[in-house]
Each structure stands twice: as structure tokens, then as C-alpha cells.
Design a protein around this nucleic acid. Structure first.
Lengths: 232, 232
DNA sequence: CACGGACAGGGTACTCAGTTCCTAGTCACT
DNA sequence: AGTGACTAGGAACTGAGTACCCTGTCCGTG
């Protein structure tokens, strides 16, 4: 009795909706069915969720706010911008891994229902725009800064989602952090300029020269890995 | 009388819808309003368009089919994969530039109407998945081939859309091809492995050695550009 | 010419998501 | 008790999308 004095209506609605969606399908379930099972009025459903789809993604609003606050924190201005948005993306991963059963069930559902896929796209897009806007500010002085920001934001989101889907498809059995680290490292190895903040050590002169030797035919990602390794 | 013996119903519906949407707004216009102006039955509207939103994007189905055929053409197998998907993306640009007035009007409309933005997202996603699936096949033998494919597809789409939006915001006054070339070159310079098909000349030995010299602090994209230039 | 199927278009009635407006209960603070 | 603010419920409405059926026309064949 100490843990659940009153389950809030919002959670009740989410649970009822998920149960009916998985049992009878999304299209076959009406909002009236949900509120009947939850024992609340129909009007209350739309007070908590703007649409039938949004009940499947109940915590994204909060996560988006969290990401915005994270990127607004001036403490992060010292970090490499690409690393920073990578860490911001990891906030989304934490939200998913915070409730693995729910996330896996939702993944199965979303895979089958076009309306839910479309809604999820809109949500992901807002994360991407948040990251892109942050990068645009950080790259304001660069040539092609806006283009660079948009491309990197898209790449980070794609890498994060790739890792997330891999984890979800495994039924939440593999290590999600390792998966996302690998995917994001793949992007940061290409786009990050971590050497920008390198000189803070003081003992490495600014004008060191780095030599990269590559055999003709070497894939570009190997070249990048090599240069990256030397510069670090 | 030689040019327009009968304007097909589909085009009539598109014209009527666009006119009403721009005059009174998307939400304020009902499907009944559209079919009344077009002089057809309501039932016919949904015979040609699956939803009220889709009438704003009447040619994307055809363009997606065109892109799929383009990527299925075995003639392209000799080209660099990233260049290939870049050219596929250019097909979308051509569709937009084929009717600049319509594209600019649609852009203004889509910017203001969330339902249209969401629908456009779904359309763009289908392009991205088409590109990603092509790259997955091309990268099947690579380590992290699927991750690489997803990230590159996202980057190409983001770069293309950046250039497209720049062109649309200019009111279709600037050169769209130059804009897209610049944006895509920005991505291919990083991700392409054009040196893979280099040895076909025959006079450049396979095991040439390339040396890249970079000052510490050089942005990674400069390094890539330099290596790229030498390897070509 | 008669018949019969295939097909493009139209009309009617229905379901259901989402909105608007109104009512009722319930705290909290005087 | 009174009052204001907040939360929930309910009834009625709009409009997108669907199911079903009707109509005309354009084919072929007998």
C-alpha cells in the first residue's frame, strides 16, 4: 500500500489502451472502448492525449523537454558539439530502456500500424529539429554551418534509431548502451572535430603535424579512423 | 483546342483543392468544398486520393516508383553507391523544379499546416527507406553495412532537403541544381569510397601509398577533402 | 440489334475521431 | 456558507473516410 496510493488517470488510460491495442488491434479499438475499460469519461481521454495515436507515446513530451534543457545547459558548451548531441540522443535511449517491456510491446505495435509509424515519425522529427537547432547555433561561424548541422543531426538520429531498433528487435536482451555507443561512434568518428578542444592540455603544440599513410583502395572510413586515432 | 481536349479529373481536383487551401486554409476547407468546386462527386475524390492531405502531394507516388526503377537498373552497379543514391535524390529535385510555382505554393502551405508536414514526413521517409535499402544491398559485405546504409541515406536526404528548402525559400529564383550539388558533395566527400572503382584505369598500381599531412586542429572535413583529392 | 459484362462516376448512410459547450463535483482559502 | 479554480463527465456536433448500391457508357459477342 505504500507504493500505489492512487494510479493516476493518465497511466490508467495508457494501460487500458495498450491492452486493447495488442489484443484487438489499433484500428479495431475505438476511444470509447478505451475509456470504457479505464472507467473514465470519453472527454477525459482527450484532455490527456491530443489524439488516439499519442497514447502510445506517452513519455515523449517529457523526454523532449529534458533534451531541450540538457542542450540549453551552458556547461555543455565546452564539449564537442557532435558529442553533445550524441549525449542528448542517449537521453531518448534511456527513456526506452527505462521500461523495456513497454518499449518492446510498443515496437511490435508500431511496426504493424501505419498510423502509429507516421505519428512516431513526427515525434522523431522533433528530436532531430532540436538537435539540428543546437548544432546550428554551435556552427554559426562555420561555412555551410546550417547544412552541416542538418546533416549531422540526421546522421545522429539515424545512428541512434538503428541501435535502438537493434535492441528492440532483440527483445531487449542485448546491451543497449554498447549498441548505441558503437553507432554514435561511427558518426562522431566522421563528423566530430574533437581536436578543436585538444590544445587545452598545453603540452601538445598547436601546430603539430599528423601524417596518415593509406594504401590506395583503403575505404574512407578506415582513413578517418586512422587520422582520428592519431589526432586524439 | 489542340492542347487540352479534356483535363483529367485528377488534375481538376488538385487545382480546386490548392485554390481553396491557399484561399481559406487547409482545415477550413472540407472535402465537400473541393468536390463542389471541381464539379464532381465526393466519392470520386477518395477514388483518386486516399486522404485529404495526399491531394497536396499528387506526384510523389510516381516519383517514388521512378526512384525505385532507377536504383534497380543494373547499369548503376558500376557507380559509387553514395553517388548513386545522390543521383536518385536528384530525381526528387527534378520533380519539384518541374513545376516551380506549384512547389513554392505547396511549400508555403506545408509550412503552416501541421497535418501536411506530418504527411510530407511520411513521404520523405519512404524515399529514405528506398535509398537505405539500396545501400544495404551494396554494403552487404561490409562490417556495419546496415548501420552505414541507414546513416548515409539519412545524410543524403537531409542534404537534399536542405538544398530543396533553400531553393523553395528563395521563391525558386536561385539555381536549384547548384544548391543540391553543393549539399550532396558535402556528404559524398565524407562518405563516398570512390577510390573503390579507381583501379579500372590500369596504369595506377593497386598498392600506391597516399600520404596526408594535416596540422593539429584541422577540421576533420578538411582532412577528408585532402585525402579524397589525393586518392582520386 | 439485343444482350451482358466491365468500368468510371455518383449518391446515401454509416462509423468514429476530435471539438465545443455545458454541468457537476471537489478541493482550498476566507 | 461562499466563492473561485480546477478536474471530470456528458451531450451534441463537425467532418474524414468507408461500405454499399445505383447509374450511365463503352465494349464485346450472339
Amino acid at each position: 500500500m505504500t507504493s500505489a496510493p492512487k494510479p493516476p488517470m493518465r497511466d490508467t488510460l495508457v494501460a487500458a489502451a495498450l491492452q486493447l491495442f495488442t489484443e484487438h488491434g489499433f484500428e479495431q479499438t475505438t476511444v470509447d472502448d478505451i475509456v470504457a475499460l479505464a472507467g473514465v469519461g470519453r472527454r477525459s481521454f482527450f484532455r490527456y492525449f491530443p489524439s488516439k495515436e499519442s497514447v502510445v507515446f506517452p513519455d515523449h513530451e517529457g523526454c523532449l523537454r529534458e533534451m531541450t534543457e540538457f542542450l540549453a545547459d551552458p556547461e555543455g558548451d565546452a564539449a564537442d558539439p557532435v558529442d553533445r548531441v550524441g549525449d542528448a540522443a542517449r537521453l531518448v535511449l534511456r527513456m526506452y530502456t527505462g521500461d523495456p517491456e513497454f518499449s518492446v510491446r510498443r515496437y511490435e505495435l508500431t511496426r504493424q500500424v501505419p498510423a502509429l509509424r507516421s505519428h512516431e515519425l513526427s515525434v522523431v522529427r522533433r528530436y532531430e529539429r532540436t538537435l539540428a537547432n543546437y548544432l546550428r547555433a554551435r556552427f554559426a561561424a562555420r561555412p555551410d554551418g546550417r547544412l552541416r548541422a542538418d546533416v549531422i543531426a540526421a546522421a545522429v538520429v539515424a545512428a541512434h534509431n538503428h541501435a535502438l531498433r537493434t535492441w528492440l528487435r532483440s527483445g531487449a536482451t542485448i546491451d543497449p548502451d554498447a549498441e548505441v555507443d558503437r553507432a554514435l561512434q561511427y558518426v562522431t568518428a566522421t563528423w566530430s572535430d574533437r581536436e578543436d578542444r585538444e590544445p587545452e592540455g598545453g603540452d601538445a603544440p598547436d601546430d603539430d603535424v599528423v601524417v596518415m599513410v593509406a594504401r590506395r583502395g583503403t575505404p574512407m572510413w578506415r582513413v578517418v579512423q586512422g587520422v582520428q586515432g592519431v589526432l586524439e
